[in-house]
């Protein structure tokens, strides 16, 4: 099976603190891959390095797009990443509160828009047409996530669970081949988490894409992920299936054991 993302020897330090230390892993096409680790293990930092929000000190991050072309992500400006088909969500949800829900989702298709400033200013018919088409597509994405009823309400007024879903719907607009989810179930209740698990599984299946996720909810991770990588202090502890990870002594020490106490 071909890979969609490969991370090799990734390291980054902040003022002497090694947040990620020589980490390597790779994700296959259509795979749901989990990244777990105790708080402060550097999971979100890994995401930020992959999407070039942080520039890693060492290591190579390679991404293979839908057409099979390989791209070296290192040094790319962050706004170019989504164009390759690699899209992310944020730990604390980054939603545009001033915009209606559907416009938030449309933002996910930003790179698709052909119209420039002048075409938009003079509302050229072709630009309006493209806007209408993408709006339809955004509506479908919202429907997929069960938000189509409130598509025109302002995002700022929505509860946390809905914000998480808007972010998810937003990732579906760019024909992704890899979606990175940063704690998709953070702050959700059990029923919501269960629905979300099904939704993520459905997205991987229906959109033929791989998913890389960080999550603290072990039930979700173990039930959903094909493979899991456990890290601690930026270092890889173990990699394998849910069962393998659960049995790994190192992981139990660093993570699962402590989780039980809490």
């Amino acid at each position: 099976m071909s890979q969609v993302l490969s991370v090799k020897n990734l390291s980054i330090s902040f003022g002497g603190l090694r947040a990620v230390d020589d980490l390597s892993f790779s994700i296959d096409r259509h795979e749901i891959y989990g990244l777990i680790g105790p708080n402060g293990a550097g999971k979100t930092t890994v995401f930020n390095c992959i999407t070039q929000f942080y520039k890693p000190d060492t290591g190579e991050i390679r991404f293979t797009d839908q057409k099979g072309r390989e791209h070296l992500l290192n040094g790319m400006p962050p706004h170019k990443i989504i164009g390759l088909g690699l899209v992310r969500t944020f730990q604390n949800t980054e939603i545009i509160r001033e915009l209606p829900i559907i416009d938030n989702v449309l933002l996910g298709a930003h790179t698709e828009f052909k119209a420039g400033v002048l075409a938009n200013m003079f509302a050229m018919p072709w630009a309006r047409k493209q806007e209408r088409e993408l709006r339809k597509k955004a509506m479908e994405a919202l429907k997929y996530c069960g938000l189509d009823q409130i598509a025109n309400e302002y995002a700022g007024a929505q509860p946390y669970g809905v914000l998480k879903l808007i972010e998810l719907a937003r990732t579906l607009m760019c024909e992704p081949s890899l979606i990175i989810l940063d704690e998709p179930a953070g702050g959700l209740n059990d029923a919501e988490t269960e629905r979300l698990t099904e939704l993520i599984r459905g997205i991987a299946r229906d959109h033929h894409c791989a998913i890389l996720l960080v999550e603290h909810d072990m039930k979700l991770v173990m039930g959903l992920c094909h493979r899991i990588c456990a890290i601690s202090f930026g270092k890889k502890l173990a990699e394998g299936t849910a069962a393998e990870i659960q049995e790994n002594a190192l992981v139990q020490d660093a993570y699962l054991g402590k989780e039980d106490e809490a």
Binding site: F53, H79, I81, R88, E94, I96, L99, L107, H110, T111
Partner: peptide, 11 residues
């Protein structure tokens, strides 16, 4: 509103 979201979405 959110520089991070805008960048991640290709702005």
């Amino acid at each position: 509103s959110s520089r991070s979201a805008a960048m991640a979405m290709g702005v």
